[in-house]
Write a protein that binds this DNA or RNA. Structure first.
Length: 301
DNA sequence: GCAGGTCAAGTCTAC
DNA sequence: GTAGACTTGACCTGC
């Protein structure tokens, strides 16, 4: 049995539970102008520093940056020249951000779809992804800074949709620098996503909660292989009442069960695995999990 | 200051 | 044919 000592890094997503700190401060479309965007970016950066500080104090190793970090960055009404000014602002904050040495990743919303054969939807999705890549590049995040999306729609023919997804990624090879795919709870299960990731040679972000809802037979050794030299990122949440809803916290039992599902497939060359808690109570969920694991604290990095 | 209404986008399901 | 869920709150308006 391979020991897990110091292998698991955890983290929370986007904001604090009560949103006093958030990397998702935004505006509504009709207020889209340079002044408002710059104001939002500054606010998001200021809060990002505080969220990294909080993460560090909790012992977290990973943080998900909000997708609205630059509001409407991929919208046609967004003036591309604004990026120059935003870049300057990011550079000002950069030394402080890098100081924490916390892995930063991103997860664009449900409207980013690469399985489509609709040119307009594809174009919009690629623009949105390009913006996410731009942010991570400007934050000087290394290749562990992935951008994870779901498989998208199936349009009544899943095989055709999967082929579309492969074609659209192969036609835009720049995506392979950071793009990762995640299993969902209704359309693309872990087996589907593993096949896609193997075919495309991109990482597979395994979501334990979705896997419980939409189960399929998978081999974790193969999932780890898709990560190559990168640190794997996995997601966990517990049920929050109804079937698909994320809970406030992550149950200790769910966390331990998750570890058990992949523990025997770990190899010595995997030095760390990051697990993002997709729990509504964010940092409180992290704290509760750490407390719950205190007798097995050796698990966490 | 606060409560309630509204908010870019796509897909799928239920009615 | 269309409203609502999904997600995930956060912003804005009107009082």
């Amino acid at each position: 049995m391979i020991k897990l000592k110091g292998k698991i890094g955890i983290g929370f997503i986007c904001s604090t539970y009560n949103s006093t700190l958030s990397t998702n401060h935004t505006i509504i479309l009709k207020n889209l102008n340079k002044k408002n965007v710059i104001k939002c970016v500054n606010r998001n950066l200021e809060d990002l520093i505080k969220l990294l500080e909080l993460s560090k104090n909790l012992g977290c190793k990973i943080f998900r940056l909000g997708s609205q970090f630059i509001p409407f960055a991929s919208h046609p009404n967004f003036n591309k020249n604004w990026f120059k000014e935003i870049e300057k602002i990011i550079i000002d904050y950069l030394p402080e951000i890098k100081k924490y040495n916390i892995r930063i990743t991103m997860h664009p919303g449900q409207y980013v779809i690469l399985s489509t054969d609709n040119k307009k939807i594809l174009k919009r999705s690629l623009t949105e992804l390009r913006y996410h890549f731009w942010v991570l590049e400007k934050l000087e995040v290394d290749q562990n800074g992935i951008v994870v999306i779901h498989g998208g729609g199936e349009y009544g023919n899943k095989l055709k949709a999967m082929k579309n997804l492969i074609k659209n990624i192969e036609n835009n090879k720049w995506l392979k620098e950071r793009l990762a795919l995640e299993n969902d709870d209704k359309i693309y299960n872990a087996k589907d996503i593993l096949e896609l990731c193997q075919c495309l040679n991109i990482p597979f972000v395994f979501d334990y909660f979705h896997h419980q809802i939409f189960f399929s037979q998978i081999n974790f050794k193969e999932i780890f292989k898709t990560w190559g030299y990168r640190i794997p990122e996995f997601h966990i949440s517990s049920s929050g009442g109804s079937k698909y809803k994320h809970g406030d916290y992550v149950n200790i039992k769910d966390f331990k069960d998750f570890i058990k599902t992949f523990q025997r497939d770990l190899t010595d060359n995997i030095k760390r695995i990051d697990i993002l808690l997709e729990a509504k109570k964010k940092e409180l969920a992290v704290r509760k999990l750490i407390l719950g694991l205190k007798n097995e604290k050796y698990l966490l990095v």
